Simulated scan of single mutants.
Amino acid sequence: MLEKIRMLIESRSEKMGFQNVLDDIGAPADGGDLAQYGPLLDSLDAASANALRGLYRQNRSFKFSFEHVMGVKVRFGGANLFDLRSVLGGLNALPDDFVPFDRTPDDNMVVVAARSGELTLFYNDSGTDDFAPMQVDLAQYLRLLDECRGLLNWQVASMHRAQAISSEARDAFLEDLRSVFPDADHRLF
Score class of each variant (00 low, 15 high):
A157P: 10
L151S: 06
A132T: 03
S167E: 14
P133Q: 12
A169F: 03
T120C: 11
R170D: 00
G127C: 00
E168R: 15
E175C: 06
G127V: 00
V180Q: 03
A132D: 03
H160F: 10
E168H: 15
L151P: 05
P182R: 03
T128R: 01
Q135A: 15
V136T: 09
L152V: 01
A157Y: 08
R161C: 12
Y123I: 00
A172Q: 05
F181G: 07
E118D: 13
G127A: 01
A139K: 14
I165W: 05
L142H: 09
F122W: 11
F122L: 15
M134K: 08
C148W: 03
L144S: 05
D183T: 11
A172L: 09
Q135K: 15
T128V: 01
F131I: 02
L145F: 11
F131P: 05
L145S: 13
A162L: 03
F122H: 13
D176V: 04
D183P: 03
S179T: 04
G117W: 07
F181D: 04
G150P: 07
C148Y: 08
V136F: 15
V156E: 01
R149F: 07
W154I: 04
A139H: 11
S158D: 11
L119S: 01
R178G: 09
L174H: 09
E118C: 08
Q155S: 02
L119E: 01
C148P: 01
E168Y: 15
A162M: 06
L144A: 03
T128C: 02
L121I: 12
W154K: 08
A164W: 04
R149I: 06
S179L: 02
F131K: 11
L138E: 10
L144W: 11
D137H: 12
E118I: 07
L151N: 05
N153E: 03
L138F: 14
S126R: 06
D125G: 00
F173G: 06
G150W: 04
Q140N: 08
Q135Y: 11
L177Q: 07
F131R: 09
N124P: 00
L145A: 14
F122I: 10
L174T: 09
E147I: 12
A164N: 05
L151W: 01
A157F: 09
Y123L: 00
D146S: 15
W154Y: 14
Q140H: 08
G117L: 08
R161L: 14
R149A: 13
D129K: 00
W154Q: 06
A157W: 09
M159H: 05
S166I: 12
Q135E: 14
N153A: 02
P133V: 08
A172K: 09
S179P: 00
E175M: 07
D125A: 01
R161I: 10
Q140F: 06
E147N: 15
F131Y: 15
Q135M: 12
V136I: 15
Q140K: 14
H160W: 09
D130E: 07
L145R: 10
Q140V: 07
S126Q: 06
A164C: 03
D176I: 02
P182V: 05
A164D: 05
S158T: 13
P182T: 02
S167N: 13
L152N: 07
P182W: 04
F122N: 12
P182K: 04
A169W: 02
R143C: 13
D125S: 03
L138D: 11
L174E: 15
E168K: 15
A139R: 14
E118R: 09
D176L: 03
L144M: 11
D146T: 13
F173A: 05
